[in-house]
Nucleic acid binder design. Structure first.
Ligand code: MN
Ligand code: MN
Ligand code: ZN
Ligand code: ZN
Lengths: 141, 141
DNA sequence: TCTATCTCAATAATGATTATCCTTAAATAA
DNA sequence: TTATTTAAGGATAATCATTATTGAGATAGA
């Protein structure tokens, strides 16, 4: 993640707090998640500052924006190529590392120039599995 | 796609127009795309009706919601399992059929129960490739 | 220290989606 | 066919996430 001496990026307490929260964070937080957490330490923190800092970090390649949750954008400080497994119930996202051979058949690409890929796995996390079992026998929706 | 005699679904000209537009449509249109197009035939069509019809079709399994474009939700009348290739420039989405062996290593799943997957391929479509070449030598952003 | 430039925080604006509410039309059965 | 029931349509307001604006304050470099 961006260091204190990063060229051109002015370091402020707010940015440091946001970066500290993100650094190594495996939870793929949303802008609101970041705001809620960092506000604890810096109650003066504005939501706008969170969005602006996200934008700065994104544009410098320190942060990835995930388009995996239809409700809100999630952010990932791990910019290495990896994939994600999302719980279809609680939307928890966990990292999946590893290489998968996903070469698109030539004719299917329709002469696109390929630049990358991302696999979304869907599943039910342990907690939600437990929750589902508990609700067995009860009225279902 | 839903037939006229689908149990419990009331057939109206608006719904028929929307369903007709979606049926076999390979373009993964957004709600606005649907609205714009169908309004041509039915100028009285309301945006709310588009959203409500989308909801009905989704809930009955006739339509998938794609979370692949961060700007807006896209819809796919092809509910068979398949993947997508998206142009990073113009956001055009094309279908990718085929099976890819993407078995997650046991320990990586963290005891999730897997239920599916979806691969997003990123690329540059032929039109945008042309566009990029044309802009070569010009001022770049 | 002075000054130009960045950044902050508050807040307004935007854009997509959802909710409300009253009217209208489709389905169904007499 | 007509009447009755009930879901659907249309207009529009509300909501929610995100982006833009703006004036005040902070920062860094001369
Ligand atoms: Mn990740
Ligand atoms: Mn598709
Ligand atoms: Zn879960
Ligand atoms: Zn393109």
């Amino acid at each position: 993640m961006a260091s204190y001496k990063d060229k051109g990026i002015k370091m402020t307490p707010q940015r440091m707090a946001i970066m500290e929260f993100l650094d190594g964070n495996p939870d793929h937080p949303s802008a609101e998640d970041i705001y809620m957490e960092v506000k604890e330490k810096y109650p003066m923190m504005s939501f706008a500052t969170v969005y602006k800092t996200i934008e700065v970090l994104k544009s410098r390649g320190y942060l990835l924006e995930l388009t995996i949750d239809p409700e809100r954008r999630r952010y990932d400080p791990d910019t290495r190529h990896h994939h994600h497994l999302i719980c279809v119930d609680c939307k928890k996202i966990v990292d999946i590392y590893g290489d998968f051979p996903v070469n698109v058949p030539e004719e299917a690409q329709e002469s696109f120039e390929l630049v990358g890929n991302h696999i979304e796995f869907y599943g039910i996390c342990p907690e939600c599995k437990k929750e589902r079992r508990k609700n067995n026998g009860n009225i279902q929706m």
